[in-house]
Design a binder for these strands. Sequence first.
DNA 1: GGTAAATTATACCGAAAGGTATAATTTTGC
DNA 2: GCAAAATTATACCTTTCGGTATAATTTACC
Lengths: 197, 197
Amino acid sequence: MTKANRTRNFIIEKTAAIFNTKGYSATSLSDMTAATGLTKGSIYGNFANRDEVAIAAYEYNSKALSEQIDRALNAKETAKDKLMSFVAHYRTAWKDEFDRGGCPILNASVEADDNLPFLKEKVQQSISSWALKLSQVIVEGQEHGEFKKEASARDYAYVMITLIEGGIMLGKITNDEKHLFLALDRVVQLINNEIIR
Amino acid sequence: MTKANRTRNFIIEKTAAIFNTKGYSATSLSDMTAATGLTKGSIYGNFANRDEVAIAAYEYNSKALSEQIDRALNAKETAKDKLMSFVAHYRTAWKDEFDRGGCPILNASVEADDNLPFLKEKVQQSISSWALKLSQVIVEGQEHGEFKKEASARDYAYVMITLIEGGIMLGKITNDEKHLFLALDRVVQLINNEIIR
DNA sequence: GGTAAATTATACCGAAAGGTATAATTTTGC
DNA sequence: GCAAAATTATACCTTTCGGTATAATTTACC
């Protein structure tokens, strides 16, 4: 790995949490120089402009989340266990995520939907790939006879995401993880009562 | 009403949607002068600083939402009809709300949770007052024998808010209201299957 | 190990940010 | 309708913003 590449990664690693916490528009060049100890010259030597750093930071943040989800899903064998593992992951991971500013998809989504088209597109991709992963597990469960065949995998995937994002929003703003846990309970109930046959 | 009060209201009315759309930090003094046709001197003659306008704008935005909810709830007699009317309201109101930047509580919540303590407090108040309204309707239904007595009114109120906010977030970022409607369907299902006895 | 190339630091721009002092203008109450 | 008070406009201030040209330094390769 070339020096520039190492510096590039260093910048992203050091600023990703700041972008997620302060926002992609509100994070300034001076925030970046302060966090990295580097100068503007160094940052602009590795990125064309501020937006490029913001994009890279979002990609870093959303990739980290995506990998967490993958790990939770892949840790189990059956479709039911995969979904339950996915839900369980949030019961332990929420605190670290909150400390880093909360769910990057939720944050970037609310910030970007009206103002940052370049980010909006990335968030849309994150969401559809997340929904796809979940619905693939559901379809897998249907094909293996674990789950009801008539359930719309895609709809259930999106309802799970809806509950989780709503729960994160409420949990974060109220400083009370109970609201997230209540949402996660609902996802479990959904799986047990409507998806499993 | 004194002239200053009229100007104050005028400023809030003209800028509230901008704050909700661009964000409470990102909306600048020049955004405000452009939207109102007034000068900085006039704005600072009516507000101590930029944050005061932001607070007033949030209060305006959240009050408008709160009054919509009140109207939906008060339009009906029975507790069930009130809840259904509340859900139905979102099926028609979502478009106007999206055009004005989306749910002010969701937007301000995500922006303020880590950065704007003065706004965070206001959002917490909005949410708890919203949850209180819904749970009062549920308790009312329980006392009148419409609803199951064992249901936790508070928990159901928060789950409804979770679903709606998650649905708005997904609907807005994907440009597809289907996700909001799916969330609203779940709220209806919740009422029919778990709350009504 | 020396040199060309790549990388980082310094010093600077113009523009826009929030904010203020003061002058000009409206309101308001008599 | 006039004077005092309240309100709005103008002009300016400092700071910070993103960005750039160039100089200093480090890296990488023969």
